[in-house]
């Protein structure tokens, strides 16, 4: 997990100012700022919330309320790689729950959990728009489709 330093907070601040230019209200910069905070700190850390609040003028409590509404934001520290596996209907009927089972057996990963070595976190997704090539997942920021246990295995091996 990257440390919180004044240098990093300064980078975040600069980005928030850039984002605020794109909207007629400061608050609209919140959602994109969260993504930037995650990129810099690995999750939306309390310090990042403080900084976003200082710059946008939106109270920290409201910022936490907004961030917690959205399933994809990392409001707590996560593993280095995030497996976002879809189990919605089209993926389910093509065997997505077998993959969930497999991740539990092989890596001890449970939905919402992280491996002890901090390598992977597992997030169960609602439809990720890959229903024609189910089952599917997003690993960090790349999509992988037509998954099987073997393919999942090989893929995960390449994420250290």
């Amino acid at each position: 997990m990257p440390q919180v330093t004044t240098e990093r907070l300064k980078i975040l601040r600069g980005k928030i100012y850039e984002l605020m230019e794109l909207y007629p209200s400061y608050q609209a910069a919140l959602l994109p700022s969260f993504f930037v905070a995650e990129e810099i700190f690995g999750f939306i850390s309390p310090e990042a919330i403080g900084e976003i609040s200082n710059v946008t003028g939106v109270p920290a409590a409201e910022i936490r309320g907004v961030a917690s509404f959205y399933a994809m934001y990392k409001t707590k520290p996560m593993g280095r790689h995030i497996i976002q596996l879809c189990t919605n209907v089209s993926c389910m009927i093509e065997g997505a729950y077998d993959l969930v089972e497999y991740l539990k057996e092989k890596y001890g990963l449970t939905p919402g959990g992280t491996t002890p070595d901090g390598r992977f976190s597992l997030v169960i997704m609602e439809c990720i728009g890959a229903c024609g090539t189910a089952p599917a997942m997003i690993l960090d920021t790349d999509s992988y489709e037509n998954l099987t246990k073997d393919r999942l295995d090989t893929l995960l091996e390449s994420y250290k």
Partner: peptide
């Protein structure tokens, strides 16, 4: 034109929830 990313909330596809979300609120 700007691309604004959602963050995994289905209800934000409903157009008025989408507007609240774009304004930086819960959708």
């Amino acid at each position: 034109l700007t691309v604004h990313s959602g963050a995994g909330a289905y209800i934000c596809g409903e157009e008025t929830a989408l507007l609240d979300s774009l304004e930086g609120r819960r959708g």
